[in-house]
């Protein structure tokens, strides 16, 4: 069994606490995700999967329960420490790519390393290496608006990998792409998983995509209703 990266116990998330419209989104979720796993979290919209993703991505803190990321208790960290966690441990891949406009592909990939305080030369070398891995090295100096959707997503994946995070957290990464480019992105994830051993958490509503992964966790109404379990 590989080392546990994410350890969640009885995670509860409530909004508007103490107000008449108080809302409980996550009803005590517990799950473990291990190193080198390729996991998908599936659920209908409103199931709480986005909230769970925010929690995993250290963008949000749970109301109750404990979340250990590489053994660190996220629920007790302040904003500054959370930003450090996001920078070092999490690699976000968004549905809409979210590249910074007017900033070329190389600079976009450099960005997480800039916030990590890595020197410029080292940053450049690493960014070029990453663009090479995702097959975008020849487009390094292109602005986001000069790239196609699939190319943007590949740059975004390179950016997510910049600081060698513990988890690549992909939120509907093919949602804004046609099926062909979507396929290419999925192939890239498989390549990263197989060749680099990257731990990937894929958030999706598509059972088809989920079926490609090693393990499927299904969320409904803020509960885990099924988990295909760790592959032996």
């Amino acid at each position: 069994m590989n080392k546990t990266v994410i350890e969640m116990r009885n995670i509860i998330k409530r909004y508007y606490i103490g107000q008449p419209n108080e809302l409980q989104i996550l009803n005590g979720i517990s799950l473990d995700i291990h190193e080198h796993e390729f996991v998908s979290i599936v659920g209908q919209s409103g199931s709480g999967k986005s909230t769970l993703m925010n929690m995993i991505g250290a963008l949000d803190r749970p109301t109750e329960g404990t979340y250990l990321l590489n053994g660190m208790d996220i629920s007790t960290l302040d904003d500054y420490e959370l930003s450090h966690i996001r920078n070092q441990e999490i690699g976000f891949v968004f549905q809409t790519f979210n590249l910074i406009s007017r900033t070329n592909a190389l600079k976009n990939v450099e960005m997480p390393m800039m916030y990590a305080g890595i020197p410029r030369k080292k940053r450049l070398a690493r960014a070029m290496e990453l663009l090479e891995i995702v097959g975008m090295a020849d487009r390094a100096d292109h602005q986001p608006n000069e790239l196609s959707g699939g190319q943007k997503q590949r740059v975004a994946i390179a950016r997510a990998m910049a600081n060698k995070p513990s988890i690549l957290l992909a939120d509907e990464p093919t949602g804004a792409l046609d099926s062909k480019t979507g396929r290419m992105i999925m192939d890239l994830f498989h390549k990263l998983h197989d060749e680099e051993g990257t731990t990937i958490v894929l958030i999706t509503h598509s059972n088809e995509l989920a079926a490609e992964t090693e393990r499927i966790i299904t969320i409904s109404d803020g509960n885990v209703i099924s988990d295909t379990g760790v592959k032996a």
Binding site: D79, S83, F92
Partner: peptide, 16 residues
């Protein structure tokens, strides 16, 4: 706003 959100997700500190 979105850019700020992305930067924060990528690990930008509030001070940055």
């Amino acid at each position: 706003t979105k850019e700020i959100g992305v930067r924060k997700a990528l690990g930008a500190q509030n001070s940055a």
